[in-house]
Design a protein around this nucleic acid. Sequence first.
DNA 1: TACAGCTTGTACCGAATGGTACAACTGCAT
DNA 2: ATGCAGTTGTACCATTCGGTACAAGCTGTA
Lengths: 188, 188
Amino acid sequence: MPRTLLERSDAVRALAGVFRRRGFESSSLSVIQQEAGIGRGSLYHFFPDGKTDMARAVLDQVSDWFEDAVFAPLRSATDAAEAVSAMTRAVADYFVSRENVCLFAAMTLGEEKETFAGEVKAYFVDWVDALAALLQRGGLTPGDAHENALDAVAMIQGGLIITRAYGDESTFLGVMERVERRLLAQLC
Amino acid sequence: MPRTLLERSDAVRALAGVFRRRGFESSSLSVIQQEAGIGRGSLYHFFPDGKTDMARAVLDQVSDWFEDAVFAPLRSATDAAEAVSAMTRAVADYFVSRENVCLFAAMTLGEEKETFAGEVKAYFVDWVDALAALLQRGGLTPGDAHENALDAVAMIQGGLIITRAYGDESTFLGVMERVERRLLAQLC
DNA sequence: TACAGCTTGTACCGAATGGTACAACTGCAT
DNA sequence: ATGCAGTTGTACCATTCGGTACAAGCTGTA
């Protein structure tokens, strides 16, 4: 008894939740249809190439969100300090409400890492470069700007790992606060 | 035509390589016997409880290495600056020769995360606490020491992720240099 | 040489995997 | 009401999964 009710983007959102909770490899088709509440027929209707297609769609959606909510504001900002604060706020909210999991980081491990190597690299490069450019506009040398941007993104990603290990959300918020403070300190 | 040649610790080393290269979930028994060069009989002889047992053995070996080469030196050091340098050197060498993968970090995601949650948490707690105690002996307040230790470990872990994404080993070495520099700067 | 106890390759098991096929149902326009 | 394109559940496929059983081989001791 099929029902019509699904937008593709809703499906992608549900898939993202499953992948975050269980990881890509251990989300079997049966698990996905059960946890996402989407039948196998719909899944292969929306994602004809199967699991890989689902992962690509999820990654694309995450990428779009970061482009709109993080990278673009970073690129177009005039007030560097304000932009740094806005970034840390947006990123902290995002990951806290997403189980402290970055799906791009998760894709640097496991079976599919080569499949998505390009997208994953682009995500991190975009982030680091957008932040570095902002820091440079804020007065840092190109070298210092790039190093500080890379370190900030690394600290965020590492913060997610340790937070999951500790099982304590406040750890991540603490890390994010100090990322912000360190970046602001660079802007003298 | 069975041969006798294997020490359990050799098997563990080979398994660690496979898990690092492919991740835990996508290392199937067939892949493991092929890439590690260990037959299924031997695998279940050494690790009666199967894959979970193999993962536990690998994690234990990594944990032992860090205890001996990183945590204990940190705890017993008298010269804080020298100990910081020794730690960053040891850790950099370790991960560079291990495909830039931390198996404990990998275990914060995927199917088995609950199974090993205790071991994973202990690994990070031991590391952060040993480093924090050293920094405190170096003159930092307990709060500052703990924050700086946590941030250092986070930056290392995040550095591994970005390095894998970039596919460029020198990125990790740069991060390690700056972790060292930042810690040394705290020791006035 | 013969024995005993570890190792080890191979064949096999039931269950689950990712993927396909397709019929049945839906909503919408006419 | 009817037709149709877009959805969806279900049954099914070959393959692979993790795990077991066990006979055959090895090594050290005597």
